[in-house]
Design a protein around this nucleic acid. Sequence first.
DNA 1: GCCGAACCGTACCGTACAGTACGGCAATGC
DNA 2: GCATTGCCGTACTGTACGGTACGGTTCGGC
Lengths: 212, 212
Amino acid sequence: MPLTAEPLDICDEAPSPRQQAVLDAVLSLIVEGDDPLTMDAVARRASCSKETLYKWFGDRDGLLTATVRWQASRVHAGRYEVHGLDAATLRDNLQDFAESWLAVIASRSSVALNRIAVAHAGSHKSNLGAIVLANGRFAIGERVKPVLEAGRAAGLLAFEDGEAAFRTFFGLVGRDIQIRLLLGDAIPLDVAEIRSDAARAVEQFLTLYGQA
Amino acid sequence: MPLTAEPLDICDEAPSPRQQAVLDAVLSLIVEGDDPLTMDAVARRASCSKETLYKWFGDRDGLLTATVRWQASRVHAGRYEVHGLDAATLRDNLQDFAESWLAVIASRSSVALNRIAVAHAGSHKSNLGAIVLANGRFAIGERVKPVLEAGRAAGLLAFEDGEAAFRTFFGLVGRDIQIRLLLGDAIPLDVAEIRSDAARAVEQFLTLYGQA
DNA sequence: GCCGAACCGTACCGTACAGTACGGCAATGC
DNA sequence: GCATTGCCGTACTGTACGGTACGGTTCGGC
């Protein structure tokens, strides 16, 4: 097993440092968003040869997939406490979720990555959209639902279906923001705005699902 | 001024019948979604020459733009009564909005068109995304807000900012549906499901904004 | 010092597709 | 009858880009 990078065909393995540098180059190109993200541009930015690109990632789709995974691996935030939940902690947790989710979907890299994945989902030939979904919408759902259920167990929330409750929360937080950003609308969203947006969403969610 | 079609360069004019047939051909190709929507495919499907396509629509972007406008011109639904609003009528109106909006965003043509527009918004060189936004999200906003304000005038709703209230309604209706569909997730959404989804959204909205 | 592996840089190939040119045909005007 | 016009169908051009091939360089192992 050499120290150098192996091809990550069925890419469940973590990328080597050099591969991470390549993926960061892809991300930087995506975020800048001026060039149409060609393999030549990636090779140039990453100071590597296209041959290496294809050896490591198989093809363009493989490179994109690895990039999405790489980006996702950096986003996953900390765990949340679900034992001995009181009203204030529940509210704080939901506020945290809402803020970080808004920050993610408003980031240039998320917008660009989602654009690529959406375009890809049209020409059906890879599961890039599914990967983005699994690491975005569904990942956050799996992290929020335990909190909601803990809230219910503590008598703070009332709902039948945790999934449905989460989807309502999701809608209250995101509203029209993601689709507008994807379609090129320039919404100014600074930190203060994100915070107040999140607070409003949490307030509304607690109005709908809060117990007493 | 001949009866035949003129180029619609600054395409605010309505397309001629023959041009409408071409645009319908584009839509049918988009909805089928198998081919990558090449100009050759359009010409073949519409039984016209590429030369005519370029003469009428300028270039590929012009054709896409005209198609989006054409599709939008068929979607705009009827007006809504805002005088003498009672609680039941308000609820019915909101229910109608929610149902028709869900039906639109879940339709194959909407998903495909939005995919194209999103992809286009990435490579910034035309305002396709802006057009989709203007005829989708913003058009429905302009139609719902008067209803909300009429509801407030009738003492049925309470809110400060009509835009904010609408955005909450939008979020409650759409939740994660549009982004999931755009990313290729296959959500089964039949008429019954749309109806109950819309009813839940209206119920939640009235819980948040209803007066007494 | 030598070998081989990994890799960079660059040149190259093939294809898909936007956009153009042109011959032919049908309809209209005179 | 003949010219003109609008359009279809097809052939063509140019180019961008995914993917491949290969010479040159560095580096670790022996």
